[in-house]
Write a protein that binds this DNA or RNA. Structure first.
Lengths: 76, 76
DNA sequence: CGTGTAAGGAATTCTGACACG
DNA sequence: CGTGTAAGGAATTCTGACACG
């Protein structure tokens, strides 16, 4: 379930999110996909669930920087 | 685990088999991958295990036609 | 801020075939 | 029989940018 083996196209199908959204969440450090030799992003099923959750939260009014994993412990 | 979401390249990495072997086993009806809209083969983790098993059997001397799922119920 | 899109390139996968044995 | 490879095309994904707001 933690194997990073799913391509972004399938993840898009699975989550209903656009590839743009998925890449943006990575840019904002909310998700950390693996990469194939060629550089293609690879996700796990856990990542898929996490992506759905992120999108839900965003629709609830949260901002990307509020959804980082750790929670705090960033600057102290 | 039964979700057909893994591309043939990753399956090749996961199983150690070449893409040629993986496609050949499909041609011989030993494995049944899904397809993306564009026609790319998509496999499940179950398929990955099945592929390893198929290759093991072949190395043990079996032939592809002896490894079909059903077992018999083909011509009677 | 979060997301859409057009742009050009690079990597991936597909099929049918010839090869060996 | 099971697998390797070169061949050309089609689909996938990548990055950086401009856009809106």
């Amino acid at each position: 379930m933690k194997d990073k083996v799913i391509g972004i196209g399938i993840v898009s199908d699975l989550t209903g999110l656009t590839e743009r959204q998925i890449r943006y969440y990575e840019e904002k450090q909310l998700i950390f996909p693996g990469r194939s030799k060629g550089g293609a992003r690879k996700y796990s099923f856990e990542d898929v669930d996490r992506l759905k959750e992120i999108n839900d939260k965003l629709r609830d009014g949260f901002h990307t920087f509020e959804l980082r994993k750790p929670g705090r412990l960033c600057s102290e």
